[in-house]
Each structure stands twice: as structure tokens, then as C-alpha cells.
């Protein structure tokens, strides 16, 4: 997930880390409109959601970012570089702290690999470990591979519309379509309608309980697009804890070797 975020702003690979979260939140498509809810044209709602979806899309991208993690037991800061190609390939490299410098996470389709320079090994992450934390953050390995297209995979319902000056904020509920294999039972997205910029995204588990909230802030021009440059994840059951991911730079449509996302070439990056 994190990698994805890095990539995009116009980030194309939605899946890595925050990107994924964002994408999940954002990307759903279509729309039923709730009774007693503000009226919205289905096409208009779809257009907004697709706009959010495209916010981090790009064919090939490279991003530098920082990640800070605060828990009740530790605080840590990491500098990362993320490369992404399409929706299925992404690579995150840790540049700092020195102890973990050179550690990489590669996502190939639904597989995740970690390259560990300290022991010079590449380890495939088993399905059993998908729900565990990624690099001590509030992102899980599952977040890295949970690819979905919100527009295709979710049914959207406009719940609320409110006017703040010239800005219209839409609250949209996103429920996975039947047949999709998605982790969350519902997402609630708050989005700025005019610029299709997400404000927050709340995740609900199968029991309908809130599990975490992702907020998007510091909208700036990044990689030629206006997009949030700071993404914060706050788990619902761990008050005071959060992970912040901040874009430092983003470059789109870069050139990458055909073998760049090859598990055998990780050592050379």
C-alpha cells in the first residue's frame, strides 16, 4: 500500500499501502441513492468516484515519501521510495533508518516478497501473515495486495451532501458488490465533489464495527496533479496511535527496466 501511495498522485498503482487504502475508499463505482438522502445523479456520483480513483493512477511512477508511526510502545520514522507499474507491480525500498536501509517489499500480483539485506535473503510472505503489520505501521501486508477498483467493485450510495463555501462535501457509503472478495464490509468516503479529492475514508469490518479511518490532507500539486500529500491512518481500537505517510516528491511516466519488478533482481536495486 505504501508504495502505491508513493507512486501516484497521480499514482497509478493503487494498491500499495496508503494508495491501496485510498483506492479502496475511492474507487467504487455505482450508485444507488439512499432514500431521504440528498439526490445525486448516478452519473455524477460515478464521475466523482472515478475522479478520486484516477487521482493516484499512472502507468509508471516513482515517489519519495516519509512514513512516521506512533504507537503506545514506539515511534519510528522511515524514508521510502516507491516504484509502481500498473495495478499489480510495486516495489518499496527503505532508505532510512540505517538499520533497515535497503530492505525492500515487492508486490507481484497477489504475492509479496521481502528482500532482507542484513541476511541477503528474499522471503515470500505467506498468506497466514497477510494480516500482520507492514514495517511496524498500521498498514498490513494485506493492504499491499488488496487490489480493487472501487468503481467496479463497490456499490455506492450518497448519504449526505453539505456545502462549505464554494466546496461541496459528499459522504458516500461503499459496499462491496456480491462476488467480490474484499476485506471490508463497508467504506464511508467523504469527498470534495468539485475537485474529486478525498477527505477521509472509514473502514468497517464484517460485524459493522469501525476499524480504522484514513484521512487525506495537505493538498498540493504533486506530479502535475492536485492531490493530498499526507495520508494518516488511525486504528479505531488503538486510541492515540497513527501512521502518517507523506509524499515528498512524485514523478510520473518514468522509464523502468522490463525486469525492474523481478524477484531475482531485488538485490541490484
Amino acid at each position: 500500500m505504501i508504495p502505491q501511495y508513493t507512486r501516484s498522485v497521480p499514482l497509478r498503482s493503487r494498491r500499495f499501502g496508503v494508495l491501496l487504502l485510498l483506492h479502496l475508499t475511492i474507487a467504487s463505482v455505482p450508485l444507488g441513492i439512499a432514500k431521504d438522502a440528498p439526490k445525486a445523479d448516478a452519473e455524477e456520483l460515478k464521475k466523482v468516484l472515478s475522479g478520486v480513483d484516477k487521482l493516484w493512477s499512472s502507468k509508471k511512477s516513482e515517489a519519495d515519501m516519509t512514513m512516521t508511526v506512533k504507537t503506545s510502545h514506539y515511534e519510528r520514522a522511515l524514508k521510502l521510495t516507491l516504484w509502481a507499474e500498473g495495478d499489480t507491480q510495486a516495489l518499496v525500498k527503505i532508505n532510512a533508518p540505517a538499520k533497515e536501509k535497503g530492505t525492500m517489499t515487492l508486490r507481484l500480483g497477489r504475492d509479496i516478497y521481502n528482500f532482507l539485506p542484513k541476511i541477503d535473503r528474499t522471503v515470500k510472505v505467506s498468506a497466514a501473515m497477510r494480516s500482520s503489520s507492514w514495517m511496524g505501521s498500521h498498514f498490513s501486508n494485506d493492504d499491499l495486495v488488496g487490489s480493487c477498483h472501487l468503481a467496479k467493485d463497490y456499490d455506492a450510495t450518497l448519504v449526505e451532501a453539505s456545502k462549505h463555501g464554494k466546496t461541496t462535501l459528499w459522504t458516500v457509503d461503499l459496499v462491496p458488490k456480491s462476488g467480490t472478495n474484499l476485506t471490508w464490509s463497508k467504506l464511508r468516503l467523504v469527498v470534495e465533489k468539485e475537485r474529486t479529492i478525498p477527505i477521509s475514508q472509514t473502514y468497517y469490518n464484517e460485524r459493522g464495527s469501525k476499524t480504522r479511518t484514513v484521512t487525506f490532507s495537505d493538498v498540493k500539486e504533486l506530479g502535475g496533479r492536485q492531490a493530498p500529500t499526507k495520508i494518516s491512518v488511525t486504528p479505531a481500537d488503538l486510541p492515540g496511535e497513527h501512521t502518517d505517510l507523506v509524499y515528498v516528491s512524485l514523478r510520473h511516466d518514468i522509464k523502468l527496466d522490463p525486469d525492474f519488478f523481478n524477484v531475482d533482481n531485488l538485490k541490484s536495486h
Partner: peptide, 15 residues
């Protein structure tokens, strides 16, 4: 190879 999250949040890995 064992790979885990250490108590300080870092990535523990050892052969």
C-alpha cells in the same frame, strides 16, 4: 529464516 516485527517496530530478520 525468521522474519518478525521487533518490539521497537523494526523488521527483525535472522538466519
Amino acid at each position: 529464516v525468521l522474519l518478525a516485527q521487533a518490539a521497537d517496530g523494526s523488521l527483525a530478520n535472522t538466519v
